[in-house]
Design a protein around this nucleic acid. Structure first.
Lengths: 204, 204
DNA sequence: GTCTATATAACGATAGAC
DNA sequence: GTCTATCGTTATATAGAC
């Protein structure tokens, strides 16, 4: 019966992830999570004691998945143009598989900045030092404009993540259905790589 | 006594704006709004009947302020480089005066896409047709790369708005206090204008 | 219009049978 | 482990005195 235990617990957790991602902590209802998991509400308390503790688990999982992806590739040993393409594609792949995670991160981060800061500190993410040096070199060799690497990183994150976070607005304004939105985002991928490399005046 | 009536009603409304912006509909408490307005909780119901109706008013005010700003300047009769600078500066000015509005819009839009779509339809915002034509001309004259004007607009919104929405993350990652963040954003303004114009390969 | 007191409903959490 | 029934709290909302 160990399998059934694990199974129930996991069904609850996965349902909680979906509901918390959609509604946030304040908007989520324990009953709703129970319904989503197709499991009796008491089981949520049996396995996780409280809404708060269940949320903590979800929070750690989602933040722990989201944040490393943001930084992972910047330190890679790749030429700048290839790196930009890889980062954009990695962001796209991740956001495609996790369409609501960015929205969750943004909202819960703003609701409780201290908790976010504490969590970030524990993650011990590497500041992209290699990338800073790479940008320095490229500037000295006059391959790109003089830019602050931090401005570039946040710009790439913004350009890729914002349309996903603001998907409702992008769809409404352009009268996109889901399919048209998906196509728009696919076209955007190539646009972004060119836009970013031109943006820093990259000379091959 | 008409003055006192209006005064109380407005104090409530302004407090409600601040609380709903920070906490969202689900996270906001009527008692908290009453405290923020320094007014008895019953008065909220006396003037606005319900939390929902009070929120509707706030929603309409905030959305009605936010959305026009996004589109206003794109149709202006300005050369492209000047237009980009003006738009970026207009976005900056608005977000500086309303530091939490973008976060509010994003969250409530995602919580209820249908309501957002309905509201947007009623606003009857002009699609930036003039801007589309301007981009067409610039492409034909080979002043810029072949780009989709919709991709450019959303990119400019993303580059300016994302750091504000994700302010907590930007601050935490870079170990910025409020002052350092403000300076980073100020430096970013010039970075963005160059980055965007280079991004579309603008030739003066 | 403003206050206190209270009704009503929703939600998180627990007890206890099986 | 799982279910039903229910407790205790909190939140919205209203009634009624002033």
């Amino acid at each position: 019966m160990t399998e059934n235990e694990t199974d129930t617990e996991q069904k609850i957790f996965e349902a909680a992830c979906r509901i918390f991602e959609q509604k946030g902590f304040d908007g989520a209802r324990m009953q709703e999570i129970a319904d989503e998991a197709d499991i009796n509400k008491s089981m949520l308390h049996y396995y996780y004691r409280s809404k708060d503790k269940l949320f903590q688990k979800v929070y750690q999982k989602e933040m722990g998945r989201f944040l490393p992806v943001i930084f992972d590739l910047w330190n890679a040993d790749l030429p700048l143009d290839k790196k930009i393409r890889e980062v954009v594609e990695a962001y796209y792949a991740f956001l495609n598989e996790n369409p609501r995670i960015a929205q969750f991160v943004i909202h819960e981060m703003n609701q409780n900045p201290e908790r976010f800061q504490d969590f970030l500190a524990k993650l011990d993410l590497k500041v992209p030092q290699n990338f800073n040096r790479q940008i320095d070199r490229e500037i000295k060799q006059e391959n790109i404009n003089e830019i602050d690497p931090r401005q570039l990183i946040i710009s790439v994150v913004a350009l890729t993540h914002f349309p996903v976070i603001a998907r409702t607005m992008v769809k409404s304004i352009n009268n996109f259905d889901d399919e048209a939105f998906q196509q728009f985002m696919e076209e955007r991928k190539q646009f972004l790589v060119d836009f970013i490399l031109n943006g820093i005046n990259y000379q091959k």
